[in-house]
Design a protein around this nucleic acid. Structure first.
Lengths: 342, 342
DNA sequence: CCGGCGGTTGTGAGCATCCACATTCTGCAA
DNA sequence: TTGCAGAATGTGGATGCTCACAACCGCCGG
């Protein structure tokens, strides 16, 4: 296995010079630079990252923790993060929580601590106090996306505002019989993520002087089939159905649209539908939605994290709570229209 | 930063004993084991993986290379692989090729070589000769999934057989006017991945004594909107449309079904549709399809790779070409029915 | 002609662990 | 009591790189 000494010998310089030359550091003459590069190429030398890590304390590796991979938001954000990190010469180590509590414990208690990552990106993951304490003890910066991380920087869309904006869009079209499909607030958690979009909906309704008809609000998981089932329920009795529905995600909106079609309803003539996400299929479905651009969020989070890592003194790594609200934007397409009497 | 020496001091033993105890090696008395464990817990000690790697040559980390993340097959397989690896105490470093040629070069020429991974899982990626030579020089085992890797072990479904099976299903129902939507053989590559399923279709048609009507074969990318567009084209002239269509992936089949519905055709009464994948939405759509269980493929690939790594002598790592055909199975649902005159 | 300056190069000491080997201990049989 | 086997423990490299520092080089001005 070819090491730095062989390269040094072949190039006729010391190992220190090889190290400097190969990492583009100053204080290397053009001549030495060339000799080293040639020697390295000839021998096919690539520095061992573990030795470099041991010597510098830097791994050039970022840990990404997320609850799912097989979902639109997560896979898009992950792809963007990966590309951005590679661009900056970082590797990305994946920690997926979908394997249950045991897996989560292993990840937080062992894997993230064995000094393998310079920092952590937590996507829609809320570490517990203990988990966070561990990470902080290592002075590893954390940046959250899609959900705030206590005591850390994070980049998140304002879910309440998004729900409100979507609902207001329906209100502005003259709808008053507005339903909602999505995650509802959970009595257990005081202010859990899934319920936030509902609060936005409720707020908009209240400000418009409307009361919420509990029969028009349906809870389901964030999938097409889940929403399809409850939507059919919701729209079956046409005399008593909402004229518009706000879905907490685009995939749910797709399910709602399919249910409406299967019941013979036309969208948007008989029913307006609005979602949240701007999924890559939303344009195809003509879905009006709230765009949240996860790829850009991911890139911004990487930038934030790398900026922190670039700070010279390690104490600055220690996490400062700092939420950055990600802007949301209404995208109007063909699934919403003015209210018209049926 | 607490190291092995602090633990040794607190436990009152040598660093070697700490090392042995914490890794569950033999030759440690129960008493010493306990003292070490207590000391480690008290200090919150976790071994530095870079130092361990430097000393042992083992990284406990697997590199996974894939072309996309944001696609059903890839995200499902990735999630399965990650869980399986974590279970075995391995980390997973992600290398996504979607960032273009430059990114690909960087990954193969630098990242995979800096001794950061013990092995590589290549998902639907065909490394070039040069790329493979690099990896072989490092004696890093590679296992391919979803596409053979020259000179390496791989686990792949037989695409030709899958296409044939799907088409034969339609033939068995009495259809003779059978179209296909999907990737077509490319004149450039002699036997490229996207065309394989077409060959299966062609083979089945030929064996049934039928000729392929070029107007019923449409090429498009592997997405719902892509298939929707060409399907509409295909079905518009009802007098001259196929009575059944084989789609090279389930997502394409969804697009075809939507197009049919929008044209007023009923599936399966007016049109039978069969796909390949058994996507997690296929049950919802009632799609008949060929199941290929990517999660299981992923787990099998991890097992193969870890088995190779467990071999005592490194020469055995050197890659042996060995293709394992993954079994495919027809899953009949509600999108296919007996041919009936329109 | 010499001192000094700026930039280049080499030296040696870490970095935190594991491994082979040497040493010490334990209990039991002779 | 002694010897001995086998297990438990400790010692001293070795791993491959980077960094701080010291030494060196050539050139210019005094």
């Amino acid at each position: 296995m070819v090491g730095i000494e062989e390269v040094a010998a072949l190039a006729g310089v010391s190992t220190a010079t090889v190290s400097r030359a190969l990492r583009g550091k100053d204080h290397v003459s053009a001549k030495a630079q060339k000799k080293v590069e040639d020697a390295a190429a000839e021998l096919g030398y690539v520095a061992s990252s573990s030795a470099a890590t041991l010597a510098t304390g830097r791994t050039q590796n970022i840990g990404v923790v997320l609850p799912y991979i097989d979902r639109w938001f997560f896979s898009v954000i992950l792809e963007a993060i990966e590309t951005e990190l590679i661009d900056h010469g970082y590797d990305l180590t994946l920690y997926n929580l979908s394997g249950g509590e045991k897996q989560r414990k292993k990840i937080f208690d062992e894997l993230l601590l064995r000094k393998r990552v310079d920092g952590v990106l937590a996507i829609a993951v809320n570490p517990t106090e203990a988990e966070l304490a561990n990470l902080n003890r290592m002075h590893k910066p954390i940046v959250g996306i899609g959900g705030p991380v206590k005591g850390a920087r994070s980049i998140t869309m304002d879910d309440v505002a998004a729900g409100k904006l979507a609902t207001e869009h329906l209100l502005s079209l003259g709808h008053t019989r507005i339903g909602m499909i999505g995650g509802l607030p959970n009595a257990d958690e005081e202010f859990g993520q899934p319920g936030l979009r509902y609060y936005g909906y409720a707020e908009a309704m209240k400000e418009a002087g409307l009361t919420i008809n509990e029969n028009w609000v349906a809870e389901c998981d964030f999938t097409i089939p889940g929403a399809y089932v409850v939507a059919k329920q919701l729209f079956t009795d046409l005399r008593n159905a909402p004229s518009a529905v706000f879905c907490a995600s685009d995939e749910m909106a797709f399910g709602a649209i399919m249910a409406a079609k299967d019941l013979g309803l036309e969208v948007p003539k008989d029913l307006s539908v609005v979602g949240i996400d701007d999924h890559n299929l939303s344009e195809f479905y003509g879905l009006s939605t709230i765009s949240q651009k996860p790829a850009e969020q991911g890139r911004a989070a990487v930038k934030t994290l790398l900026d922190i890592l670039a700070l010279p003194n390690a104490e600055d790594h220690d996490n400062v709570e700092e939420k950055k609200e990600w802007p949301v934007k209404l995208v109007v397409r063909a699934s919403t229209a003015k209210f018209a009497k049926r």
